[in-house]
Design a protein around this nucleic acid. Structure first.
Length: 562
RNA sequence: GACCCCAUCGUCUAGCCAGGUCCAGGACACCAGGUUUUCAUCCUGGUAACACGGGUUCAAAUCCCGUUGGGGUCGCCA
């Protein structure tokens, strides 16, 4: 270990790198949060420091334990492990806890009291309604609203105490100093904020909890956070945090504000986007066409009207199914369900707002850890491009050895599509997985087209109007229909029902009756067993399906197209 | 509206800080052709950007100023 030059050891410098990811536990981990966590983690790992996870649950209205657990799993799935924080599997713990802000209220109160005693903060008794009215009035008059603390500060200490004693609701506000505030940011550079741009902001809510600004500042100090990496929407907040640090005599961490991640249409990528999609679909279809379950669900009207309200996860899935709309993937968990590999998501996310320079864009965690630096983080927002993510996924899936793909596909089905595990023998499942490998872009994208394997024979539908199906069955000389009729007894008499046996038998038929053109025979077969022209290679498809189902489906198909 | 930040192909971006090697490179998407028993791949080729206007300079995508455009913030949310 070499020692640092003494010049670096200023009062503000924290010698050990400690980064933190500090989400509020509302809902799942979304991709923006995941990227912030990723960069925090990568920087800590690179510097041999610590990565801390802290749960910012100071909003009693929103917090829920189940939600906070959900994204711990998401983080682990991405391969982002934390040294300190909530204990989960082999992560968490640490000597600077508790890591849930709701359990640190006493600590905040101590510092809050200190500021009040020192005259740097004061009680204020305005109601939310009063403030709201003033804000609206200011806006109507085209004026900037700033809180006027003169009335609150004019209150004598005795008067304040008396009103507190009778239980009047009060917040504590920070008395903003009058000097300009210079924000230094590793990514954005320097910005000077005039004190008039800020006002005496609330640091303790009426319910006794600190506001975000206060809790962040206290915790970052106490947890010895050296580097704060967070989304750019917090840039202005930095000024508030800095004046609080000064008032409290705290050290100043290094700040780095990350560019935002947008939807392709330029709107901010939000967890509300799913509900937005659903509302639009409901409105387009008309509420009367909704499934009765939903029409009768209490609150569906309120949900339709309130842009901020969110449906429960299961309800959203059901409604999307009912409306036949695809919900946008927003959360890490959504991408997991969609069959993306964690390494792929990590790689793509890392490229949003950062890159290692040159033409390199495929890399793993180790490379990110080695190369990550604030100097290569972009300043402007990036749009999330699902097509590019899909392309990355495709490459990664194709690079997998087939045995590995089979293993991952089985794990994916275990969790999300158990019917494939239940209805197929282990051997046939493996054959299906292997047959799907080279057609797959994700672990999930061939599930829909493979459904015919697990459906009842009678559930296969033949759409005689379908152009491709008609072409396969009715066209040609002889037409596909004739091939099916000829093949039926041949297949029913086949003893070796596996890929090799089928290839031999059908291959021979093709040579003799279809001029060696496999497509002439494979396509009718495909339509017969799937109802569509889409399936894995035909021999694999038939081998997995089995002789009985194949024969039944060929008969049904011939009837349908008769 | 006020303040702060930003600005290269449709998208993510390299190049900019240390001006010339950039009539701007890569990837995704798109288009055309080819391979393939379907689908999906795969191969080859192509279209496509320095927001605009002024400066500085022998020379500007790169430096400066302005305009325009985009974003963020302005909560007892975080």
């Amino acid at each position: 270990m070499r020692s640092l030059p003494s010049a670096v050891m200023t009062a503000d410098a924290l010698s050990t790198v400690r980064t933190r990811f500090a989400p509020s536990p509302s809902g799942h981990l979304h991709v923006g949060g995941a990227r912030t966590a990723l960069f925090c983690w990568a920087y800590a790992r690179q510097q041999g420091g610590k990565f801390i996870l802290r749960i910012e649950d100071t909003d009693q209205k929103r917090s829920s334990d189940a939600a906070s657990l959900g994204f711990l799993r998401d983080l682990k799935w991405l391969g982002i492990d934390w040294d300190e924080g909530p204990e989960f599997e082999d992560c968490g713990g640490g000597e600077f806890g508790p890591y849930f802000q709701s359990q640190r209220v006493e600590t905040y109160t101590k510092y809050l009291d200190q500021l009040v005693v020192e005259g740097r903060a004061y009680y204020a008794f305005d109601t939310a309604e009063e403030l709201d009215a003033k804000r609206k009035a200011a806006r109507a008059a085209n004026q900037n609203y700033r809180y006027d603390g003169s009335a609150a500060m004019a209150l004598s200490p005795d008067e304040v105490q008396r009103r507190l004693d009778v239980g009047e609701a009060a917040v504590i506000r920070f008395k903003l100093p009058h000097e300009p505030i210079v924000i230094r940011d590793e990514i954005l550079g320097e910005a000077t904020i005039a004190p008039e741009q800020l006002d005496d902001f609330v640091i303790r809510k009426a319910d006794g909890f600190p506001t975000y600004h206060f809790a962040v500042v206290v915790d970052d100090e106490l947890m010895q956070v050296s580097h704060v990496l967070r989304a750019q929407e917090h840039f202005m907040n930095t000024a508030r945090h800095m004046v609080l640090q000064d008032a409290l005599g705290f050290r100043r961490p290094t700040y780095a504000h990350l560019p935002l991640i947008f939807n392709p249409d330029g709107s901010k990528m939000s967890k509300r986007d799913k509900d937005k999609t659903l509302r639009a679909a409901v409105k387009a279809k008309g509420i009367d066409n909704l499934n009765v379950v939903f029409r009768q669900t209490a609150g569906i009207d309120a949900w339709l009207k309130d842009k901020d309200s969110q449906l429960e996860f299961d309800s959203a899935i059901m409604l999307a199914d009912d409306l036949a709309v695809q919900l946008p993937e927003i959360n890490v968990d959504d991408f997991r369900r969609s069959g993306y590999l964690p390494d792929v998501l990590i790689n793509y996310l890392a490229l949003l707002g950062w890159n290692p320079g040159g033409d390199v864009e495929k890399f793993d965690r180790a490379y990110l850890v080695e190369k990550f630096g604030f100097d290569r983080v972009l300043k402007s927002p990036a749009k999330f491009d699902r097509a590019k993510l899909l392309a990355f996924s495709h490459d990664a899936i194709q690079a997998l050895p087939t045995e590995e793909f089979v293993r991952l596909f089985r794990a994916h089905c275990d969790e999300f599509h158990p019917e494939f595990i239940e209805k197929l023998s282990p051997e046939h499942f493996d054959l299906l997985a292997a047959a799907n490998h080279k057609r797959s872009k994700t672990l999930d994208d061939q599930v829909r087209s493979s459904l015919f394997f697990v459906l009842e024979d009678s559930a296969i539908e033949y759409n005689t109007e379908d152009k491709n199906a008609r072409k396969a069955i009715a066209n040609g000389d002889p037409p596909g229909r004739a091939h099916l009729e000829a093949l039926l007894p041949l297949l029913e008499g086949l003893h070796q029902w596996d890929v090799a046996g089928l290839e031999k038998a059908i291959g021979a038929y093709v040579e003799a009756q279809a001029g060696g053109n496999l497509g002439k025979v494979a396509q009718p077969l495909r339509v017969a067993v799937t109802g569509t022209t889409i399936s894995p290679a035909i021999y694999e498809t038939l081998a997995i399906l089995g002789k009985v189902s194949t024969a039944i489906r060929i008969r049904r198909c011939l009837e349908a197209f008769a």
